[in-house]
Write a protein that binds this DNA or RNA. Structure first.
Lengths: 141, 141
DNA sequence: CTGGATCCGCGATGATACTG
DNA sequence: CAGTATCATCGCGGATCCAG
């Protein structure tokens, strides 16, 4: 289970998280954590979760308007995935015209916290990354 | 700059992060934060960063062995992106056979912290997600 | 209004061969 | 060993039409 490349290991709280990731490296194939990470790091999923973090309940059309560039199909697919993963609930109001409300579950809200921290990191360090990219372009002259 | 769908806003530290994301919703198109998020949430990038978090320096071949399933091409592309973003350094040793070492920068290490927290969330809540998926499958009978 | 179903283009990715 | 270059492919995701 433990994987060492080279011969260095991590100490403290990092060790547990690393070990989970280790499943994916070396010779093993399927890793649930990687599976979950792949899903929640999905481009549209992140936007949907963040948007639902700003608004307790949202209808399909509101989400569509709120996530710029997303197609109807991808919104449907994304919301279906998030619902399957238990990150949000889908409530159908049997009326004409139909009305469907989406809302984060408690699980979804806990994930929201993580995504916000990640987005905070991104906004704080964005300038460094953008500058690094520019310098890299200049270097190729 | 501020976007409200419905009429709810967030309080506290979440507000800033949300506002950055807001650029991507509504009518605007390009958002640097989204750009950065898309890049750092890339499947292979996460693996490479995590692996380089476990080992201060790694050669190309070691990374290839450590990230199961990645092709040579994608490893090259991924490392190039991470280098362009200033998240890792690439050191070439001019010798035969060639030797190249990759190492996280300080920026990369700070991101590593965030990714580890995300992976910790994933490993802690993985069971709920997997159970939710199973229940959803059972529901479709 | 909220999707489901279908078609399809294209970019991302893998496989392979080659090189300093 | 550490890539580069090229070709083939495959699935994401957009566009469109249809339905309840």
């Amino acid at each position: 289970m433990k994987v060492t490349i080279g011969n260095k290991e991590l100490e403290g709280t990092q060790e547990n998280a690393m070990d989970h990731f280790s499943d994916n490296h070396s010779t093993n194939h399927y890793c649930p954590v990687t599976d979950v990470i792949d899903r929640i790091s999905d481009k549209w999923s992140v936007h949907a979760i963040i948007l639902l973090g700003k608004n307790e309940k949202l209808r399909f059309g509101e989400l569509k308007k709120g996530i710029h560039g997303i197609s109807q199909r991808m919104l449907t697919v994304t919301l279906k995935h998030l619902e399957q993963d238990g990150l949000l609930t889908r409530t159908v109001f049997p009326q004409i015209p139909p009305k469907v409300e989406y809302q984060l579950t408690e699980l979804g809200r806990s994930l929201l916290g993580q995504l916000i921290k990640l987005s905070e990191w991104a906004s704080e360090n964005m300038v460094h990354i953008l500058r690094a990219r520019e310098e890299h372009i200049l270097k190729n002259d």
